[in-house]
Nucleic acid binder design. Structure first.
Lengths: 332, 332
DNA sequence: ACCTATTAGATTAACGTTCATCCAATAAAA
DNA sequence: TTTTATTGGATGAACGTTAATCTAATAGGT
C-alpha cells in the first residue's frame, strides 16, 4: 500500500532506524546520508505517519481546544491566536465547542484524553453538579484556561482584567451623572459574569451609591438576548439613561431595540459593550466598548501550555492581559 | 503508568483480545462477560487509547476540515454543521484555517494526510500556480468541498445555487428600475465570486442591458473592504442607486460608509448582502440578503463524506442546497 | 603503540491496540 | 449416534514508528 520508512530503507540500503533519524534531522546521521534519504523519501512520495509516531513516542503534538460559543466571533479570534501559536511550536489543534454546556465540556475533555492530546486549552463553564473542577484537577496532561477561570484553579488561567474593565465602564457612566444604568449581565456559569458584576459593585460602592437589582438582568450573551431584554425593559417602563453590556453581541441587540423604540443613541441612552469585536466599530452607531486582546489571549495560553508540556515541574501561575476602554459613537 | 487492556485482562482473567472485543460491544462476547469487563474497566479508570486503535485499525475516526476565513461567521456556522454531524457519526474534526491562502491550504491538506484523517472537507481556494487540483485528485482519502468548488472537481462539491441567487438579487433591483448598481464582488480565487458574477451577467443579458465594468469591484470580503470601496466610489463620483454585495460582511461596511456620507438606506441607496448571517437582521438598517443554509452546507458535506468513507466505490455527485431572497429594511 | 572519544550506523524491542485464525464446548440437525 | 453449526473465547502477529542499546571504524591524545 503506502510508503513507509521500511521502503525507504530498502531503497537506500540504510536501516529503518537510520531513515527515521535522518528524516528527523538527528545529528548522529551524517549530512550526506541525510541528503540521500530525504531525497529518496520525496521521490517515493513518502507521507510520514504521525499516528504511528505518536504511539511510539507518546507525544501526539496535538492539543485539545474546548471553546465555548461558536456563534461569538470573540472565540474565533482567541482560537486564531491559539492556532497560529500552536503551528509555530509544531502543534496542531483538535477543536470542539461546548455551546456553554458543562456536560458537553466534560465529554470533550474525556474525548481529548482518549485522543492522547499533549495538553488542553479550555474556556470553561462552571458546574456545581458534575465534579467539573475534579475532572480538570485529575488530568494527567497540562491544561490552561483562557479568558475564564474555574474556582480553585485560578492558577491555570490566562485572564483579562474583568473587574477593572467593567468597573471603569460604570465609573465613567456614573461620573457623567447617569443614575439609572441598565446592566445586561452574562450567563451565570462563566467567571467573567461574576467578575464584571464585582467591578460594577465596586464602582457603586466607591461612590456610596446604591445598586438596584432591577437594573441587573442576566442573559446568555447572544444578540437576540440584548434585543429582547431591552424591549422588555422598555415595556415594563423601566427608566434608564445608559446600558452597559456583558459583551458586544448583547450591545448589538440593544442598539437595534433602542432604534426601533425611537430612542437615540447616545443622546437618549448611552451604550457600552465589552470585548471590542472587530465588527463593533462598524455598528450603527459604532460601539463604545472595552478592548480585550483576544488573539493574545489565545497565543499566551498556547505559549503557557507548551511551557508546561515541555517542563512538567513548572508551577502554574495566573497570567493576565490588560484591557482598555474604547470610546466611539454610542457614548458621548 | 496508565491502564491498558492488558491490566483489565489481568484483573478479570480474560484475554486482552476478549477485553478489547467486549469494550467494543462485539456480539461474539457474551453479555455477562461484557458486563464484568466494562465494569472493571470503569473501576480501573481505563481510558481507551484512540491513537493505538487508529494505528491498528487504520481508521482514525478523524476528519480534516480546511476552512477559509476565520473572521467570517459564515464559516463558523458551516463548521458547526460539520461538527455536530461528525459527532453523530462518531467522528471528530481536526480544524484549520487557510485565511484564503492556497499555499496554506496545500500545507494543511498534507498535514491532515500525515495525521491519517479518514477524509477531508474543504472550502477551497483556486490556485493556478501550485497544482492544487492535482493535489486533491491524488488524494487517497475521500474529500468533499462545501460551499465552493474547484474546476474539474465539481462532483466533490456541496453547493448552494450561486448563479440563481445572485441573479435573483440583480433582477429584483433592475426590475425596480435601478440602472446604476454597484457590485462588490468577492475574491477572484473562490468559485462563488465567479458564479455570482455569472448570475449578474445573466440578469443584465436577459433584459438586454449593458453591464458597465466600472460598477464591478473586487474585494477580499471583509467589512473594511465594503467600507473602503464605498467611500472610494463616492469620492470618485461614481453614481449609483443600489449596491449588491458578495457577502453580508461587505454589506455591513457599505452601510457604515453610506451613513457617514449622509446617504439614506434604502431611500437613496438600496443595499443587498449575501449569506444571511445571523447578525444581519440586527444591522441598522437590517440587511436584505440571500439566505444560504450554512449549517446544512456543513452537515450535508459531512454526511456525504461519511458515505464515501464507508463505501469507497461510491460515485461522487454534486449536491446542492437552495437559497432564497430575504427582504429587510435595506431595500424598499 | 595503547587507550579513549567520537562518529555513523545497525539491531532489537517496544508502544496499545485490533485482526486473522484457531480451538473447545455446546446445541441443533441428520 | 454422528455431523454440522454456533457460541465464547484464546493465541499470536501486525500496524509504522521511535527508543534503548550495541558495534565498528576512525580520530585524537599521550
Amino acid at each position: 500500500m503506502s510508503i513507509g520508512l521500511k521502503d525507504i530503507a530498502q531503497s537506500t540500503g540504510f536501516s529503518v532506524n537510520t531513515v527515521s533519524r535522518a528524516l528527523r534531522k538527528d545529528p548522529r546521521i551524517s549530512n550526506s546520508t541525510t541528503d540521500i534519504i530525504s531525497r529518496t523519501a520525496t521521490e517515493l512520495g513518502y507521507i510520514p505517519n504521525a499516528i504511528a509516531a505518536s504511539m511510539r513516542s507518546s507525544r501526539s503534538k496535538t492539543i485539545g481546544v474546548v471553546s465555548a460559543d461558536s456563534a461569538n466571533p470573540f472565540f474565533s479570534e482567541v482560537i486564531r491566536g491559539i492556532e497560529e501559536t500552536a503551528r509555530h511550536f509544531g502543534y496542531h489543534i483538535l477543536l470542539a465547542n461546548t455551546e456553554e454546556s458543562a456536560k458537553k465540556e466534560a465529554e470533550l475533555v474525556r474525548m481529548f484524553l482518549c485522543r492522547q492530546v499533549d495538553g488542553i486549552i479550555a474556556m470553561p463553564t462552571y458546574d456545581k453538579e458534575s465534579e467539573h473542577v475534579e475532572l480538570y484537577r485529575g488530568l494527567s496532561v497540562p491544561y490552561v484556561f483562557t479568558g475564564r477561570y474555574l474556582d480553585g484553579l485560578q492558577d491555570h488561567s490566562v485572564l483579562h482584567e474583568d473587574v477593572e474593565g467593567q468597573r471603569a465602564v460604570i465609573e465613567y457612566l456614573l461620573d457623567k451623572g447617569h443614575r439609572n444604568i441598565l446592566y445586561l449581565a452574562g450567563p451565570k456559569k462563566v467567571s467573567n459574569t461574576h467578575d464584571r458584576l464585582t467591578g460594577i459593585h465596586e464602582a457603586y460602592d466607591a461612590r456610596g451609591l446604591n445598586l438596584d437589582d432591577n437594573y441587573i438582568v442576566h442573559a446568555m450573551g447572544h444578540i437576540e438576548d440584548g434585543y429582547a431584554i431591552t424591549n422588555h425593559a422598555l415595556n415594563r417602563g423601566l427608566e434608564f439613561t445608559a446600558i452597559a453590556c456583558f459583551n458586544d453581541m448583547l450591545a448589538m441587540g440593544v442598539l437595534k431595540s433602542l432604534h426601533e423604540n425611537n430612542l437615540s443613541v447616545p443622546d437618549d441612552v448611552e451604550v457600552f459593550g465589552y470585548d471590542n469585536l472587530y465588527m463593533s466599530q462598524f455598528m450603527q452607531p459604532s460601539l463604545s466598548t472595552v478592548d480585550v486582546p483576544k488573539f493574545r489571549l489565545g497565543s499566551v495560553a498556547m505559549e503557557t501550555l507548551v511551557a508546561h508540556i515541555e517542563d512538567g515541574s513548572l508551577q502554574y501561575a495566573q497570567k493576565s492581559v490588560s484591557t482598555r476602554l474604547i470610546f466611539r459613537e454610542s457614548t458621548r
